[in-house]
Every structure is written in C-alpha cells, then in structure tokens.
Design a protein around this nucleic acid. Structure first.
Lengths: 202, 202
DNA sequence: GGGTGCATGTAATGGGTTACATGATTCT
DNA sequence: AGAATCATGTAACCCATTACATGCACCC
C-alpha cells in the first residue's frame, strides 16, 4: 500500500499556489520566484510533469485557453479534493533536513592550509551576500505592506520574510566575529611561528 | 577544455580529510560524521568512487593493509599533487547556494489554510530541534577544547561550530517571535470572524 | 534582423542516498 | 543466537536542474 508518484513537495507547492488564483505552469514559475523565491524554487522540468499527475489524480482541473496569436494556456485550478490534499499535507510534520551542506564552512574547516587572506575573502563575500539579502528582504517587506495590506495571508508571508531577516542578521554577526578571529589568529600565528623558529634555532 | 569528472566537492572533502591523517574510505565516513557532521555528509556511494578517481589522478596514494581475520583495508594518503589540488580548491570562491528549500517556511506561507495549532506545532518542533542542536554544539565545543587543545586547526573548527550556534540561536529567536505572532493572529482572527459573522447576519 | 516574452513540454545529465551483496569477528 | 563493527563496493533509484525543441508576436 505504498503511494507511488509522491514526488516530494513540488505537487504540494503547486496546490498551495493555486489557492491564490488559477494559473498555468508558466505562471507558477514566475509566481514562485516572486512570492517564495527566498526559500523555494521550482523548474519547468518539475512543474509540468507534476501538473499532469495532479490532474490525473483529480486534485486540479485543467482548462485550455486558446488565444489568437499567443500559445495556448493550460490554466489549472484547485478542486475540492485538491484543497483537501493541501490541508492534509500542511498538517504533516516537517521532515527534518538531514544536514544542508555548507561549502563555506567546509573551506573554513580546512582553513589552516591556506593563507588568512583567502579565508577572509570567503567570509567577506558571505557577509556581503547576506547584507544584500537583508536589503532585499526590507524592500520586499515594504512592497508587501503597501500592495497586499488587506490580504489575510500577509501575516504568514511576513513570517517567512522575518525568518530570512533573522538568519541573515545572524550570519552577518557571525561573519564579523569570524573576521576578528581570523585577524587574531594571523597575529598570533605570526608570533607563534617566530617563537617556533627561535626555539628551533636554539 | 572542460574538466569532466569534477564530481562536486566530495573529492575535495576527501583530500581535506586526508590532511588529518591517512585513512580508509570506511574511516572517512566515520570521521566526517564526527568532525564536520553538523554541516556536511558523505555516503559510501560517493566516497568509494571518488577515491578511485582521486587515485587515478595521482592525488592520493592507496596502500592495502591485509590483516588476518579482518577485511582488507585500503588506506589512502595525500600526495604532494593532492595537497596542491586541495589548496587550489580552498582558494576558489564559494559557489553561492541558489535557494535552499525550506519546508517549514513553505507550510507557514500557506498557513492560512490550516488551524493556528498546526502552525504552532511546526514552529514548536523547529524550536525544539534548534535547542537540541545548541546543546549538541556546546557539548562538542567542550570536548574539542579538552581533547584537541593543542591542535593548530582548533580555531577553524571552532569557527564552524560558532556558525551553527549563531544560526540556531537566531532560529530559536525567530521561532519564539513567530509563536507570539501566531497567537496574536488567532486572537484577532477570532475577533475578525466574529465581526464578519455579525456583519453577515445583519 | 534579433532579442525578449509568452507558453509547453521532454531528454539528458548530475549529484546524491539507499539498498544490496559479501563475510569474518567480537560483543551481549 | 543475534546484533554490531569492520570493510568494500555496485546498482537502483530519486529528485532536481539544464538544455533542447518549437513557434508566434512585439519591440527596438
């Protein structure tokens, strides 16, 4: 009694999107980028096959709009069964992420084998990226509060945004702290190696 | 002039590990879990093929130890070329992670469609997981400071641990803040829906 | 004429985990 | 007796991105 064709959370994401309004696969991609792009992404290679399966299971309904001059649009909307499935999924516990791999930390872990400067550059770039993200989050937040002020979903959207803010702020703090430590380390390493040389020569 | 067989960062990770001491593929897995397990993981399915390729490229050297009663051990050690390759890789810029998918945020984004309780449970579990992680980090840190006090690589290891601490602390703060928001939301939603009902019935 | 936007879809490829196959030894 | 540790490796599978194929319309 296994359910084949689960396909992870992509289908559920699409069901969620369709609560906002009926749309096509093409729209979905754009919508995802604009709304949940800071913590989620989907590619056409996932979206189109998923939609086909969702339609086969009766969770979404497809209507083809034909327009002159433009390609056909397959517009999907949520069925009651689809809405049901969505709220079931929303209630399932979040499967804990194993260990998201972190290339920055991997390099830093072996940081002894390169110059302090190399390590500093990695951390500096990381800080810059997160400062950029922070700016982006503020901009999005302002825009949301202006344009979606009356949407009952706004508070939830802001919570996800706040997550990004907390995370990036922490990352920037860690980055600065780490830069200080790297500086310190270089200074004491300098002293250390001099001392070691001296000890050797004696 | 493309370099085929890059294989991502797994081979580089293995090179890094071999700077600590020569070891077998089997050892590597265990070592990874103990040392960088909080931000990295590798499976045998990745390790063994990577080692084969690294040996073919002359970046590591393989020596087979035969012991009575035990299976053979293929012990690998770093060659000068391997050490060179490692420091080259350590100097390459970290490729920015696209957007790590976050299932918790995905559920929260669509939180409007389920009860406040469901959302609260997700967040509560998330807080608990991060508090657990924080305890783990402290334990590891204590152990490192005790057992590896003289290792010159210790400061780098502590930096990666500190990253986890900063992150989990931020996540816990966000979680608590979000729980408060959810409570607030439920209260105002209660009032709102009562008001809406009243308005409807009039 | 060429890029961009609209629109759908498939195939190839990549990176990774899990399961499987094998088999002795040691601990409980 | 049965589980855990030691030890290596392959095959199957999963999920996801990227590239490709197609083609019209609009703008510069």
């Amino acid at each position: 009694m296994k359910k084949k064709f689960d396909g992870g959370s992509t289908p559920n994401t699409l069901l969620g999107l369709l609560t906002l309004c009926p749309m096509s696969g093409y729209d979905m991609r754009a919508m995802i980028d604009r709304s949940i792009g800071h913590f989620w992404s989907e590619s056409y290679g996932q979206i189109y096959p998923s939609l086909k399966r969702l339609a086969a299971e009766g969770l979404v309904e497809k209507k083809t709009e034909r327009k002159q001059g433009r390609p056909d649009r397959n517009v999907f909307s949520l069925t009651p069964a689809g809405r049901q499935r969505l709220s079931e999924w929303l209630s399932t516990p979040v499967k804990e992420v194993e260990t998201p791999r972190n290339e920055l930390l991997l390099r830093l872990f072996f940081g002894q084998h390169v110059s302090a400067d190399v390590n500093r550059q990695h951390v500096t770039a990381f800080i810059a990226a997160n400062e950029g993200a922070l700016k982006h989050y503020s901009a999005v937040e302002k825009q949301l509060r202006r344009e979606e002020a009356n949407d009952p979903q706004l508070p939830y959207w802001l919570m996800t945004l706040s997550f990004g803010r907390h995370r990036s702020e922490a990352f920037v703090r860690w980055g600065r702290e780490t830069l200080r430590k790297l500086d310190e380390l270089e200074r004491s390493r300098g002293r250390g190696s001099k001392a070691a040389q001296k000890a050797k020569s004696e």
